[in-house]
Every structure is written in structure tokens, then in C-alpha cells.
Design a protein around this nucleic acid. Structure first.
Length: 1051
RNA sequence: GGGUGAUUAGCUCAGUGGUAGAGCGCUUCGUUCACAUCGAAGAUGUCGGGGGUUCAAAUCCCUCAUCACCCACCA
């Protein structure tokens, strides 16, 4: 064997061998009738690459999967990737930008093709990285959240058609009324030009300003404004012909529909119900809006009056809904001020008619563009500046004394005495989590899941827990977070105005059966003009009852055919044809009508329908990951076998995005929990605790680390640091330490090999547990092995990964390498061939167990060692996981004896080091007193002790010679006669120090034992333990005192 | 504003009622035939402050301080 393990060379080779053997296939190594164990990988983005969080997340999954597989369970680790709507589209758009092209330079179809190509190019990237890490996924089942969607060239090895499953769920939920369409205020990302969900918005404290403006009362009216303090004393009273409004977003004033004050606010009671003027826009067409009351305004904040802009603020939206206030949209999809529709003058007049009582539909109101002509097309932030300037120039800003103009006259000369009130203020500003641009609340038509209606079982499941057929979430703290979010759940906006994703399976058509769609001239036939009038007027349908949802066009066609069948001739002959969009439909229907008017052939008439252009939120599809990957809606064997799955391992950052949605959706579709346990882990951070990010430059690439230290070391590090519920701060020195651990294991095995030890699964039972034969060291290490096996299982059972790793680390390094291998050296060199044979057998077994128990955490080096240390019938990946009990293997006597031997050796070493006895010097030792157990222990382990303590000989004496070092152990006293080198003062100091420490401990123990309440209340075994400890320390203290007394004689 | 978690050795962190541990770092020593990616021996803690419960508290409760994260609509 080489001196170290060559990870870079061996790991890929070993992985290939596993794959070749089909070692990771679902059910590989399963015992007949075994229980199942299934983990769904959290699908990484298809164009992504492996970061530290993935490495951590997948290491934990791999540990559980390998552990269960070795235990003979029917195991599936389902891999796959996510199409990641925005993220992936972004990658492709960025690529296009390099050659100065935009998405809109392509047709939708062509662009989506480009994305598919990108997906195809990068699909193997993440997989190769996971393989490098050692992830034992069943790659033959690799899934993709858009598999089977139009344009998919790759398909999936597992054959799942994820797309069909997603569409099917949409249709089902739609039919149950759980998915609906509506014009709502949503978070709009002006960069990607799409709606996003609440969760995709990051609220960040940003420095901003609050402006205060005067809204003049209509017709020059005035009122007495009275302000009182808490006691009701008048502190301000003045005549005003305006009302003050504060805003952080002046540009939205253009869309105000009202000013609201609290119903109990006495200051404004005189003017409630009156009109006031929005102080911006062309003078000739200033809009008047009503002053209304609503509970929302807080009288103590600002002026107590709030402007209501229903289309651009979530609070205002609610007020507007309650008060029937029109909601005027001011911006386009890119966040610029609208530049469409009629000129401002016309729009403002229309708005004024609404104030006067005109009722319009939502769509009609949406068509009104209230942006003044000079601001149209401007970016929203530029428009803000201009609005502020215009109002201020007009003298309608609230003014305050200029703080810079007070005080001494010389320096402030020329400065205005009054300035506009503009408060600097940090405001919570919403940003898109991907685009990083300011999110705009925008009134648009979107699709929503009625989450509140399906959330019940998801809450209930976690409340009742795994043992009652529900789901456990670990750690506990995350359960609260989960509940809090679900109990306050909002409708989930699932439509996105993107091109990459699952297109909403809904088709629209003109309403031919609706009211008002009639032949004006009652001549029994529609002509082109009549039809177009109707269509362009109001018979267009985008309303709820006028679209059709179906899995595909064929099904939709049948639905529309039914509707057409009820219409009068010739419309009932029209053919349903799919066209690109509403625009195309208008042209198509006009053209076909023209054709008909010429030919009078009813089969020439077409009825155009067009599909909803939106795609579904990525999380809608990944929310179906557990069933979609198992072949649902088909009742596949895998679905029956592995669903509900066993464990989900994921980071806390996607509890809402993903975990909660999966819970809701699996219950909605299957009526069943998706997993028994959710294990939520921490985020990986850099060694200073900072989130790793490219901009900070503190990103550790897991693959670089794997290159440098080997996958096993990286995995072991992550595992050892996986304590629940905290950040995981990673440093390379820690990884290096665990790399050293692999080397340590490697060399222990190397030592064994050099001494004729071979791997064996034969438990050396004949030597252990209360047998008369057998070396104590061998008996002892077998017992220790059983203890660590129990500890590892116990830890993994409870997802205490770090406990498992630390137990193994302490065992392999601290027990096997530090002690057992050293003990074995004299034994293997023994002239007694039986001892040699016994020790080889024991060591062979113990090292095998180390490999087995370490394999889930460090699969590569252990597999390599497994195959080099014996001819095996199977690979380690399929080796049988042990189940022996400590109770069966631990020999109490041997355990005691080895503990005694170890402490004797440690005492001698310590004394020698402190007395500066040359390390290599073998010295004689004297035995002053020793009880029977000690004598037996010495006799049985003489060779070991002598070797490890560097003792030359042992002789019994009555009196201690002058100038010797005392070694006090349980049941005996030894000494090292070192007259020539001993420093009496140093030895005295050493003994006194030890004694002082002992006395201190003893004091505590005695104190407890003399406390009657302790004796009465504490459990018996605790009292016994305390007594034993006190007695032992008493004894040791006595010996040390004796030694000090002897020293005193010498001196 | 609400919520959650954290505060333990120089650093990074384990430790859920029995009197405090690991890794790294540090000091001293070591060319012993598995390993210098090593070995041996050491030093370092009012377990954030205060109060309470208990025979016993790093651990449970209250409170204060500081930090971190999550959620939230104050114009």
C-alpha cells in the first residue's frame, strides 16, 4: 500500500465501478420484503452548478441513503433537476445580451428552443458534480420538472412525463375551483416583466425621502384646522384651504383615487365628503378626488391623511376595494410611466366623470392613462423627480423654516427662510430576489391558487407528527416557522409572464353566446362590421366564465365545439382553430368572415381560440416533485412502493417556497403526506459567518475542495459540523484536519496489512466476552466497536449527523489508532502463535467494522480499503450493516482492566514528561503496593505497558528509594527511581499541583455527600457514583500525601 | 412592530439537570520499523449580566444586554 490515499485518482474510479455495478439502483441490495426508504433530492437548477449548500445537503442525504441501503432496505434516492423558470431564462437572456440580442428578437417558440438547447448543454454538469461528491443517486431515474413539455429533446431516463403531471394537477385544481383567475394587485418585477410571488420579494431597508404636499380643497373652500395635545388643549388653530399628505412615492399621486382620513379624526371631520385637488398635472385638467374615511389611516402618523392609489400600493388597494375607489394603473410592464391610450386631458375628464358617478368595468378603468403627457414614457424614478419639482414650483409643498437659514445673519444671507418639508427616512423597499430591481405593486390579471382552502391538511399533518400518520419537521423551531406561515397564508400567484415554463393550460375565445352578441339589423346574419364592433367593444373574453381549461387543445376544442353547436347557423358550422393571441384571433375571424361573405360557405368560418401566454411559477411544478418523479398520475410500482417518501432534507430557506407547497399540493392531489420527516439544515457560511456570495468573493467551491482534500474529507467535515439549527461556518483548516483523519485510517489499515492482517466478517467471538482465552486488549476493542456501532445507529436514527461523525472520529483515532494498534504491536510480535492469530483475526474484524461504519460518511476511501484488504463477495457499498449489541460484546472485566492499563501508561508518560525524562529512555519501575486486580492486570498486559510507558523492568519493593517519582493509580502505587535526574522541588510541585486539583474536586463531592437533602433526593445511582468517586479520589489523595511525606524526608 | 435562535477555551463550535468537552491554534519534547497529513505531554473557561426553581443549573423559568435571521402595509 501507498503511504496515503490518492483521492483524486481513486474517487472517480470507484464511483464508476459503483455505477457500472448498478449499486445505486432503486432496490439494490434490498432484502426480500424489506422496508422501503426513499429520499427525493431537492432538484438543483438545471443550468446551475454545485455550491457548498448542495454539497452539504447532498452529503446528508447520501449518508442516510447509504446507511439504509447497507441495512438491506429497499432504497431509492431519486435525482433530477428543476427547470427554474426565471433563473434559466435569465441565463439564456444574458447569453443573448453578449451579442446584443434580446428575447423579443425571437419568436416565443424559437426562444424556448434556445432554452432547451441550453438545458441540454448543461444538464450533465450538476450530475457530474454530484457524482464527484459521491452521491449515490439512482441516475437511471433522473427526472426533470419540464420533462415531456413541448420542445423537450432529451426526455428522461425514468420515462416520467412531468409536464403532463403538472398540467393535470392544474386542470384538476381548476375544476375544483381551487385555481382561479383575477385582476389583483401583485408584485411586479419590472426587469423580468412578470408577476412574482410574495416570497420572491426581498424587503430591504433603504434610505428614502418622505415629501409633504398640500392637496387644495375644491372651489377654494377652507376650514378651521385644529390640533390638540393629549389633554385636549388647543396647540394649533388655523384656517386652511388644503389638506396635507405625506408620501414616499410622489409619482403615484397621479393615480390617486381619494384621500382617506380616520373616521374618528376630528381635525378633518369638517371636510370629509368634500373634494380636493391632486396638486400635479396640467392646471387646466386638475383632477378632483373625494376625501373619504377609512380605518386604515393612523391619525398619529404624519398628517393623518393618506392618499389612496389603489393600483400601486397594497394598503391603498384594500382601502379602494372597501370604498369603491377606482384604481388607476400608471406604469407599463417595464416600470415606465404609461404612454398608451388617450391624451391626458381626455383621460382626466373620464376620471372626473367617475367621481361624478359614472360606473366603468375594471378593464375600462385600466384603459385610462392618467399620466400627464409630459411625463409619459419616463422611468418611474425620473417621473418622481419631476412631480416633486412641479409641485414645489407651484408652491404646494408643505414648507418649514430652513434650519440652515437661522442663526447668524452673515453666513446664511441669501438662503431661503422657508424650505419644502422633505424628511430623510429609511423605508422598507421591496426588491426582486433575482432581478434586484425595485418591485412595483401592479394591477394585472393573474392566476391564483386558493391556498387557504388546501392548507388545512398540511398544518394538521405536522401538528400530529410522523407517529400519527403525519410529518415531523426537525428541528422543532422550524415547525413554528412553518405553522406561522401556513396559518396566515395568502393566495398564491402562480402565473408568470415568462416564456420558459409550463404554459397555463387555458384557452380563450370570443364570447359568441354572451349577452349583447346579437345581430343589430335583425337580418339573421352578422356582417363583418357588426362582428368587429362587437368584438372590439365588450364581447371579448378574458372573464372567468369565458375561458376553458383542459389538458390540451384537443380537449379544449371539444368544449368550444359544444358551445358553437348551440349557436345559430352559420356560426354553428365554424371550425375551432388555435391562433397565437387575441390580436391574431381578431384578424383571423375578420378574414374568415370576409371569406364567408363572398363564398357563403359556412365551413369557411373559423372560430379562433388562443392560449393563455403565461407560464406557471416554477414552485408550482416542483411542488409536485414527490409524485411527479414516481410516475404519477400512472399508478406505477414505484409510486406504490416509495410514496409517501421517508425523509426530505433541505435548507431552511425554502421551507415556504417548497416544503410547505409540497405538503399542500400532495395533500390536494393524493390526500397524503409527501414525506414522514423533514430535516431542515443550516446554511453554509464562510469562516467569518458571512453568507457565501460571489460579490463578496468568499465562495468556497466544493469541487475545488474536493480536488484538494478529497471528497471524503469534505463530506466528513460537513457531517461533523451538521449540528441542528445553526449556521455552518466552514474553514479549510477543518477540512484539512479530516483529510488527515482519512490518512490516519489508511495507515492503520496499512499497518494491519504489513502484519498479515486481512479483512474478515467473522466476529472473533471465541475470544470475547467472559471467555478465559483471549487477550484483554482484543476483548476490549471488540466491546468498544460494539459501543460505537450503537452510537452511530442511534445518532443517525435521530438525524444527529455530527454525533455519528464525532463518535466514529473518536473511536477510530482515539481508540483504534492511539491504543489498540499500539497494544497490538507487542501481541503481533509475540512468539505465541495463538496470540498472533487471535490478534490478526480481531484486528481484521475491527478494521472491517471501521470501514463499514464510516462508509456512509466517507464512501470512497472505505470502499478502496475494503477491496484491497481481502477478496470480497461484494462491494462495501452493499456490505451488511452490523447489528451486534454492546451488551453482547462488552466484557466488563476486560473493559476495567484496559482502562486501568491506559491510565497507568498515561500517568507514567505524564510524570516522565514533566520530570523531563528523555523520551526514548527505557527506565526501571518499582512497585510499592498493588492490589490483586492490579497484579493480574499487570501480569496479563506487561508487554503492552512496558512498551508504551517505556518501562524497562518492574520490581517489587517495600520502601521507596530516595529521589523517585511517584505514580499513584487505582489500587496501587508505583515509582520511578531517578535519583540522578530528579529535581526534588519539581516533583514536589508536580505532586502538590495534582493534589490541589484533587482536593478541590473532593471538596465538592464531600459537600454533596454531607448534604442530607442530596442523599434523600438524588437518585440512588447518582449517590453511589458520587460515593465511589469520592472514595477513589480519597485513596489517590492519600497516596499523593504519602509521596509528599517521603519527599520531605529526602529533602 | 411581531417572531425565532444565539451568547461556552485565543478561534470555530458540541454539550437539555449530576459539577464542562472537541477540532484548530498555542507551549514543551520526540528522526521508536502504520502514519510528521504523525506521536507524547501541557496551558487556557466567574458557560453574556442579574434574579428564580431544585439536593444539584451551561442545561429549566423570569429579566436585561448584545448579535443574527425570518415575517410584517405605517402613508
Amino acid at each position: 500500500m501507498e503511504k496515503t490515499f490518492n483521492a483524486a485518482e481513486a474517487e472517480p474510479r470507484i464511483y464508476a465501478a459503483w455505477e457500472k455495478a448498478g449499486a445505486f439502483r432503486a432496490g439494490a441490495n434490498a432484502a426480500p420484503g424489506a422496508e422501503t426508504f426513499c429520499i427525493m433530492i431537492p432538484p438543483p437548477n438545471v443550468t446551475g452548478s454545485l455550491h457548498m449548500g448542495h454539497a452539504f445537503n447532498n452529503t446528508l442525504q447520501d449518508i442516510l441513503v447509504r446507511w439504509h441501503r447497507m441495512r438491506g432496505h429497499d432504497t431509492l434516492w431519486q435525482p433530477g433537476t428543476d427547470h427554474a423558470g426565471i433563473a434559466t431564462q435569465m441565463v439564456v437572456e444574458r447569453e443573448l445580451a453578449r451579442t446584443n440580442r434580446r428575447r423579443t428578437d425571437f419568436t416565443r417558440e424559437d426562444f424556448v428552443d434556445l432554452v432547451w438547447q441550453q438545458k441540454h448543454k448543461s444538464r450533465s454538469n450538476i450530475r457530474e458534480q454530484l457524482e464527484r461528491l459521491g452521491a449515490s443517486c439512482d441516475w437511471s431515474r433522473e427526472a426533470f420538472t419540464m420533462a415531456g413539455a413541448p420542445g423537450d429533446v432529451d426526455g428522461t431516463p425514468g420515462g416520467q412525463n412531468f409536464h403532463d403531471a403538472v398540467i393535470r394537477v392544474f386542470v384538476d385544481l381548476y375544476e375544483k375551483g381551487l385555481i382561479y383567475r383575477g385582476k389583483r394587485l401583485v408584485n411586479w418585477d419590472p426587469h423580468f416583466e412578470t408577476a412574482i410571488s410574495d416570497l420572491e420579494v426581498e424587503n430591504v431597508e433603504t434610505p428614502g425621502h418622505m415629501w409633504h404636499f398640500k392637496y387644495p380643497l375644491a372651489g377654494g373652500e377652507s376650514y378651521t384646522y385644529v390640533e390638540r395635545d393629549e389633554d385636549g388643549n388647543v396647540i394649533l388653530e388655523e384656517e386652511r384651504d388644503w389638506i396635507a399628505i405625506a408620501t414616499t412615492r410622489p409619482e403615484t399621486m397621479l393615480g390617486d383615487g381619494a384621500v382617506a382620513v380616520h373616521p374618528g379624526d376630528a381635525r378633518y371631520a369638517p371636510i370629509v365628503g368634500k373634494l380636493c385637488e391632486i396638486p400635479v398635472g396640467p392646471k387646466a385638467h386638475r383632477r378632483l378626488i373625494p376625501i373619504i374615511t377609512d380605518e386604515y389611516p393612523d391619525p398619529d402618523f404624519g398628517s393623518g391623511a393618506v392618499k389612496i392609489t389603489g393600483a400601486h400600493d397594497f394598503n391603498d388597494y384594500a382601502v379602494a376595494e372597501r370604498g369603491g375607489i377606482p384604481k388607476y394603473r400608471l406604469m407599463d410592464t417595464r416600470g415606465a410611466m404609461r404612454d398608451d391610450g388617450a391624451p391626458y386631458a381626455e383621460a382626466a375628464m373620464k376620471a372626473q366623470e367617475i367621481v361624478a358617478g359614472l360606473t366603468l368595468s375594471d378593464n375600462e378603468i385600466d384603459a385610462i392613462n392618467l399620466v400627464p403627457d409630459d411625463l409619459r414614457g419616463l422611468d418611474r424614478f425620473e417621473a418622481r423627480k419631476r412631480v416633486v419639482r412641479q409641485i414645489t414650483d407651484e408652491g404646494l409643498a408643505v414648507m418649514v423654516p430652513n434650519p440652515d437659514a437661522s442663526g447668524d445673519q452673515e453666513n446664511t444671507a441669501g438662503r431661503p427662510e422657508w424650505v419644502p418639508l422633505v424628511e430623510a427616512k429609511t423605508i422598507m423597499q421591496p426588491f426582486g430576489d433575482r432581478s434586484k430591481v425595485v418591485i412595483e405593486p401592479m394591477l394585472t390579471d393573474q392566476w391564483f391558487v386558493d391556498a387557504a382552502s388546501i392548507v388545512g391538511p398540511a398544518i394538521e399533518a405536522v401538528r400530529k407528527g410522523k407517529d400519527n400518520g403525519g410529518t415531523d419537521i426537525l428541528p422543532e423551531a422550524d415547525r413554528k416557522v412553518y405553522f406561522h406561515w401556513l396559518e396566515n397564508i395568502e393566495p398564491w400567484c402562480i402565473s408568470r409572464q415568462l416564456w420558459w415554463g409550463h404554459q397555463v393550460p387555458v384557452w380563450y375565445g370570443f364570447d359568441l353566446s354572451g349577452e349583447g352578441f346579437a345581430d343589430d339589423e335583425a337580418d339573421g346574419a352578422l356582417d363583418e362590421v357588426e362582428l368587429l364592433e362587437l368584438l372590439s367593444d365588450q364581447a371579448l373574453l378574458k372573464g372567468d366564465e369565458r375561458h376553458h381549461c383542459a389538458p390540451d387543445f384537443g380537449a379544449v376544442k371539444a368544449q368550444f365545439d359544444d358551445v358553437l353547436g348551440t349557436l345559430p347557423t352559420p356560426l354553428n358550422h365554424a371550425r375551432v382553430v388555435e391562433v397565437a393571441d387575441r390580436e391574431a384571433a381578431l384578424h383571423a375571424i375578420a378574414a374568415s368572415l370576409a371569406e364567408y361573405n363572398v363564398s357563403q360557405d359556412p365551413t369557411q368560418l373559423i372560430y379562433p381560440v388562443w392560449r393563455d401566454a403565461d407560464v406557471l411559477d416554477t414552485w408550482f411544478s416542483s411542488g409536485l416533485w414527490p409524485i411527479g418523479t414516481l410516475g404519477w398520475p400512472d399508478e406505477t410500482e414505484e409510486l406504490k412502493k416509495y410514496f409517501p417518501t421517508s425523509v426530505l432534507i433541505t435548507g431552511f430557506d425554502i421551507i415556504f417556497f417548497w416544503v410547505a407547497r409540497m405538503m399542500m399540493m400532495q395533500y390536494a392531489v393524493m390526500g397524503e403526506r409527501p414525506f414522514d420527516t423533514v430535516y431542515v439544515h443550516a446554511l453554509v457560511r464562510d469562516e467569518k459567518g458571512k453568507k457565501m456570495s460571489k460579490s463578496l468573493g468568499n465562495v468556497l467551491d466544493p469541487l475545488d475542495l474536493v480536488e484538494e482534500f478529497g471528497a471524503d474529507a469534505v463530506r466528513f467535515t460537513l457531517t461533523a459540523m451538521a449540528a441542528m439549527g445553526r449556521d455552518l461556518k466552514l474553514s479549510t483548516s477543518r477540512i484539512a484536519g479530516y483529510r488527515n483523519f482519512t490518512t490516519k485510517l489508511w495507515n492503520a489499515v496499512r499497518f494491519a496489512e504489513m502484519n498479515g492482517v486481512t479483512g474478515t466478517d467473522a466476529i472473533p467471538t471465541q475470544y470475547i466476552r467472559d471467555t478465559d482465552v483471549g487477550q484483554t486488549a482484543n476483548k476490549w476493542i471488540v466491546g468498544e466497536t460494539a459501543k460505537v456501532r450503537e452510537a452511530v445507529d442511534e445518532a443517525l436514527e435521530h438525524f444527529r449527523f455530527n454525533d455519528a461523525a464525532n463518535a466514529l472520529y473518536a473511536f477510530v483515532w482515539g481508540k483504534v489508532c492511539d491504543w489498540y494498534v499500539e497494544f497490538a504491536k507487542p501481541l503481533l510480535a509475540s512468539e505465541d502463535t495463538e496470540i498472533v492469530r487471535e490478534t490478526r483475526a480481531t484486528m481484521g474484524w475491527v478494521l472491517d467494522q471501521c470501514m463499514i461504519l464510516l462508509h456512509p460518511i466517507m464512501p470512497f476511501i472505505t470502499e478502496e480499503l475494503w477491496q484491497t484488504t481481502a477478496k470480497r463477495g461484494n462491494m462495501l457499498v452493499h456490505a451488511a450493516w452490523p447489528s451486534y449489541q454492546a451488551a453482547d460484546f462488552v466484557d466488563e472485566k476486560a473493559d476495567h482492566e484496559m482502562t486501568w492499563v491506559i491510565s497507568l501508561i498515561e500517568e507514567v508518560r505524564s510524570a516522565r514528561a514533566q520530570m523531563h525524562v528523555p523520551a526514548g529512555l527505557h527506565i526501571p519501575m518499582l512497585q510499592l503496593e498493588l492490589d490483586a486486580a492490579g497484579r493480574a492486570a499487570w501480569d496479563r498486559n506487561e508487554a503492552l505497558i512496558k512498551r508504551l510507558a517505556r518501562v524497562e523492568s518492574l520490581s517489587e519493593i517495600r520502601d521507596m528509594p530516595k529521589g523517585a517519582i511517584t505514580i499513584a493509580v487505582d489500587g496501587g502505587t508505583f515509582c520511578l527511581p531517578l535519583a540522578e535526574i530528579i529535581d526534588v522541588a519539581a516533583e514536589k510541585a508536580r505532586l502538590e499541583k495534582t493534589l490541589a486539583k484533587l482536593e478541590k474536586e473532593l471538596g465538592g463531592l464531600r459537600g454533596r455527600l454531607s448534604n442530607e437533602k442530596f442523599l434523600a433526593s438524588a437518585p440512588e445511582d447518582v449517590v453511589d457514583e458520587t460515593r465511589d468517586a469520592a472514595a477513589a479520589k480519597d485513596d489517590e489523595a492519600a497516596k499523593l500525601k504519602a509521596a509528599l511525606a517521603r519527599l520531605a524526608e529526602v529533602a
